[in-house]
Simulated scan of single mutants.
Amino acid sequence: MMKPSKTLSATAGNKSRGSSRWLAMVLVRALVVILCVTTAVFFLIRIVPGDPSKMILGEYSTPEALESMHHALGLDLSLGDQFLRFVKILFTQGDTGNSIISGTSTRELIADRAPVTLLLIGMASVFAIIIALLLATLAATNKDKLPDHLIRIFPTITLGMPVFWVGLLLILMFSVRLRWFPVGGVGEGWGGTLHSLALPAITVAFSQIPTLVRSLRAQMLDVLESDFVVTLKAARIPRAIIMFKHVMRNAALPTLMLFGVNLSYLIGGTLVVEQVFGIKGIGSLLFSSIAKRDFPVIQGIALYCAISVVIISLLVEIISRWLDPRTKGKS
């Protein structure tokens, strides 16, 4: 008969090997996605009509000048050679080259604008989570009552609203009429920065709240109807403890995974909202680079955003597996 210590050791070894295989598969999948995004960004940008050399030299530039500029920018090479050159610079320098317009490193341009954009994304995420928790809890605890009906109607209406249109409405209401927030730009100091980014962050969060509320409400209702919650109620455990310690903890996991999936939409919405509110972040840099056909900067922004989404989605998946007791020990 096998000793208990040997049995426990074998079980622990199987769990460790199963977790290692799962983590390796997830990392490989993330790497493949990053490589596919890198390839797609390079070729899709070059499909768009327009000549960067003409943007620099002007419409009335001579063919000789255009040819010289093409050579300087490496645009006279074949697409295959350009791609190999692009990949080499990307993996050796962590960059996509120098800006065609300013000649500055793409990495430096993005790093200069990134803090404001990252802060805006962080604030939008916090607002989305807090508001979704409050609305979903109110709806789940008042099932089929007036608050529940109003909150269930809310996602249906708001999902069809473009984020830039919501931003314009909020500016008219809270900046022009009530004057609670500045119309645009970023204030000075931490207090001024947070105050000026509050309204844009709420605008970005507005696009994520409907799906989060709908998902979290459904999960909370399922947990509230489960047997262990009925037992806790029969034991006269305080309602607040049941909701926040047991119900919300078990219902939050699927919503967390949904939030990770929708993160790409949140980042994309942030770039658009920056234009609406006149914030000099990565979004304004992206739109100005698109207008000027600045290939390296467009590629850099697209790649850094895509890699950020892949990494954060990977972390959400790892955290979700770690928090979910049903996946612990599965090979």
Rank of each mutant, 00 (worst) to 15 (best):
K3V: 11
K6N: 01
A24M: 15
L27F: 15
L27G: 02
A30C: 04
C36V: 06
T38D: 01
T39K: 01
A40Y: 02
R46T: 08
D51P: 03
S61I: 03
T62W: 00
L66D: 02
E67K: 09
F83G: 08
F86R: 03
F86G: 12
I89S: 05
T92P: 14
G97T: 12
S102V: 05
G103A: 14
S105P: 06
A111D: 14
A114H: 13
V116R: 15
L120I: 09
I121W: 01
S125H: 06
S125Y: 06
S125M: 14
V126K: 01
I129R: 05
I130A: 05
T137Q: 03
K145A: 03
R152M: 13
T156R: 07
T158C: 11
L159I: 13
M161E: 12
P162M: 07
W165D: 09
V166F: 14
L172R: 12
M173P: 00
V176H: 15
R179L: 04
E188N: 11
T193I: 13
L197I: 12
L197Y: 06
A201Y: 09
S207Y: 10
P210I: 05
T211L: 11
R217V: 02
A218Y: 13
L221C: 08
S226R: 00
F228P: 00
K233H: 06
A235R: 13
R236K: 14
R236E: 15
N250F: 02
L253H: 04
M257F: 02
L258W: 01
V261P: 09
Y265G: 15
L266N: 08
T270G: 12
Q275Y: 10
F287D: 09
S288E: 15
S288H: 07
I290R: 01
P296T: 03
A302F: 13
V309K: 03
S320C: 04
R321P: 00
L323I: 04
P325R: 00
K328L: 08
K328D: 03
